Amino acid sequence: MELRTKRLLLRKWKDEDVQPFARMNDDPRVVRYLARIADRSAIEAWIKAQHEHFKKYGYGLWVLERSDVAGFLGFCGLVNIPYRAHFTPAVEIAWRLHPDCWGRGYATEAALAALAFGFQYLKLNQIVANAAVDNAASRRVMERIGMSFNPKDDFDHPLKAAHDPLRHQVLYRLTYQDWTETLAVDLVRVSSRLFYVSGY
């Protein structure tokens, strides 16, 4: 599947995405609160895993680019959480954008399309997101797209080492019911004008 918004295309991964993704992965601003992928071979394996996730589930992390100009901006999408925690099994919404794209509302716009796809097309009951406690930018996006935070949901990420300062994470949630209620004004706009699904 591919998604379109007013300004963005959320598309499948291509071979030419490896190099710009590797550059983004090496930017300390991008990975300050996120896991850095080790090297080129690990990046290629990560992208291969995205293709496999799409084939298995029909959704995953899409590459972001502007609708009017081709070029890698980052990624956004939905993934099945691979680890065990108090809130799993669950589907997570995630994004990562190049710093040149920060502050333009791209993450929020892409995330709204991914949510619409998850709730309208996939019929998910709930979508979650997590972030390092101090990752204020990502937390603001989670709040803008209608997700709610409860400190009781805080958790230690099982895939991060005990000494990792990013191990402690906050969890945000959005249920289908809350999505339809809190975003009722935007629902028609997203589904009728900004969001459509095409074959992957």
Rank of each mutant, 00 (worst) to 15 (best):
V170S: 01
R167G: 13
L115T: 03
S148F: 11
Q50H: 10
S191P: 05
P158R: 06
R167F: 12
G118E: 04
W95M: 03
E181L: 11
G105L: 08
L171E: 07
D156M: 09
L183R: 15
G118T: 00
S191L: 13
E109N: 08
S138P: 11
D100K: 07
A136E: 09
Q169P: 04
L78K: 02
R167Q: 15
D156N: 15
R84I: 04
E109W: 00
A137S: 03
A45K: 06
D68T: 09
R144Q: 11
A45Q: 10
K56V: 11
L174P: 04
D100W: 04
G58E: 07
T175S: 15
F54R: 08
L159K: 12
L97N: 00
E181W: 04
L97V: 05
K55C: 04
R167N: 10
L115P: 01
I81W: 05
D154G: 02
C76K: 05
Y121A: 08
Y121S: 11
L78Y: 08
G58F: 15
R173H: 06
V170H: 04
L187E: 13
P99M: 07
R167Y: 06
L124G: 02
A85D: 09
H53D: 06
K56G: 14
D178A: 14
V141S: 02
R189V: 06
T108S: 10
S191F: 11
E143D: 12
F54C: 05
I47K: 02
W46N: 08
L73I: 07
M147T: 03
D178E: 07
V63G: 05
P89D: 09
D186H: 14
D186G: 10
Y121T: 11
R104P: 01
Y83R: 10
A131F: 03
R140V: 11
A90D: 11
N135T: 03
A107W: 04
F149W: 13
L115D: 00
Q177C: 10
L61V: 08
S138I: 14
L174F: 07
S67A: 11
A111N: 15
E181T: 13
W46K: 12
I81R: 13
K152I: 12
N150H: 12
R140K: 11
V128N: 03
L124N: 01
W102R: 01
N80I: 04
L122D: 06
G58I: 12
L97F: 05
I81E: 15
G60W: 02
A90V: 06
F149N: 14
E143I: 00
S191Q: 14
L174R: 01
V63T: 13
F54S: 02
L166W: 03
D164F: 08
I93T: 14
